Simulated scan of single mutants.
Amino acid sequence: MAGSVTAVSRSATHTFSKVPLESVRLLPGLGVEGDAHSGTTVKHRSRVAHDPSQPNLRQVHLVHAELHDELRDAGFAVRAGDMGENVTTRGVDLLGLPTGTRLHLGESAVVEVTGLRNPCGQLNGLQDGLMKAVLDRDEDGNLVRKAGIMGVVVTGGEVRPGDPIRVELPAGSHHPLQPV
């Protein structure tokens, strides 16, 4: 399975949306250089309030551009970075990846997938109804979260739009993604 990076974004402050850039640098064990969510321990405000010593399993947020297409078809105006993602991808079934998958981005960066992003009500602050639009139900009635995945940086490097993505599945049994 291979795909490509369509956009990269970051924000130095805890704004909901992030600014698309020409490139971002991923730092091993930390996340996106200069991003408010970079660090070894949790940076999301609600998680910091609960326990600031928790490991940061949400260093990098990835969203598939196909979700943006789906949302545009449903009448939403969503661009790369709007939903807080650092890396926007195309051609990789992010939501179908197992925990522990390694995504090789560009020449050297590697992000290990830790879980699903649990969408929050701030999405409705971006556009009314967006929260509901990124949630669905499968054929068995189980909740499907479509707002992207989270990961940690294993190997650092520069990531740019147009960079290839190579998917490396984990060895052994695979476990479906859960919210982190």
Rank of each mutant, 00 (worst) to 15 (best):
Val152Trp: 00
Ala12Val: 10
Asn142Met: 10
Gln178Cys: 08
Val144Cys: 13
Val111Asn: 07
Leu21Thr: 07
Thr155Val: 12
Met83Asp: 00
Arg137Ala: 11
Gly148Lys: 06
Leu97Cys: 04
His104Leu: 13
Val60Asn: 04
Thr41Lys: 05
Arg47Met: 15
Gly162Phe: 08
Leu57Phe: 12
Asn118Thr: 12
Gly91Tyr: 11
Thr88Gln: 05
Ala147Leu: 11
Asn86Phe: 06
Leu27Ala: 12
Lys146Leu: 15
Met83Thr: 08
Gly96Ile: 11
Thr88Ile: 11
Glu85Leu: 07
Pro164Thr: 11
His68Thr: 00
Pro98Arg: 05
Leu130Arg: 06
Leu62Lys: 00
Val159Met: 09
Val113Glu: 04
Arg25His: 14
Val113Gln: 02
Ala36Ser: 07
Gly172Val: 12
Glu107Cys: 04
Val144Gly: 02
Gly84His: 07
Thr114Ile: 04
Gln127Arg: 15
Ser46Ile: 14
Asn86Ile: 03
Val159Ile: 13
Thr13Tyr: 09
Gly29His: 13
Val152Met: 02
Glu168Met: 15
Pro98His: 12
Leu126Gln: 04
Gly100Tyr: 01
Ala77Glu: 07
Leu21Tyr: 05
Val5Glu: 03
Leu30Lys: 14
Ala133His: 01
Glu158Ala: 10
Leu21Arg: 10
His50Lys: 13
Glu70Phe: 05
Gln59Lys: 06
Pro55Thr: 14
Asp136Gln: 13
His175Ser: 15
His175Glu: 10
Val152His: 00
Asn118Asp: 08
Ala12Leu: 00
Pro55Gly: 06
Ala109Phe: 06
Phe76Lys: 04
Thr89Cys: 11
Gly151Asp: 03
Glu158Met: 10
Val111His: 03
Arg45Lys: 14
Glu168Gln: 14
Pro20Cys: 14
Val152Ile: 12
Arg166Phe: 08
His44Arg: 05
Asp136Leu: 00
Glu33Asp: 14
Leu26Ala: 08
Leu30Trp: 05
Phe16Val: 14
Pro179Cys: 05
Gly31Met: 05
Pro98Met: 10
Met83Ser: 07
Leu123Cys: 05
Arg47Thr: 06
Thr41Glu: 10
Ala74Trp: 00
Thr13Val: 11
Glu66Gln: 13
Thr114Met: 06
Val63Glu: 05
Gly29Phe: 06
Asp93Glu: 12
Ala36Trp: 14
Pro52His: 02
Val48Ala: 08
Arg166Val: 15
Ala7Cys: 07
Arg160Ser: 14
Val110Lys: 03
Leu71Phe: 08
Thr99Met: 13
Val5Trp: 07
Ala49Val: 09
Ser9Leu: 07
Ser11Tyr: 00
Ser4Lys: 14
Gly115Met: 11
Leu95Tyr: 04
Val167Gly: 04
His44Leu: 05
Gly84Thr: 00
Val110Thr: 13
Val144Lys: 15
Arg72Trp: 11
Val92Tyr: 04
Val78Thr: 00
Asp140Tyr: 08
Arg47Ile: 09
Asn118Tyr: 03
Gly96Arg: 12
Thr15Tyr: 10
Lys18His: 13
Gly96Ser: 08
Leu57His: 13
Val111Glu: 05
Cys120Gly: 09
Glu85Arg: 02
Ala36Asp: 13
Val152Phe: 00
Val5Met: 01
Glu158Thr: 15
Ile165Gln: 00
Lys43Ile: 01
Gly29Arg: 03
Leu67Thr: 06
Val5Lys: 01
Ala65Arg: 01
His174Glu: 12
Gly151Met: 06
Thr6Tyr: 06
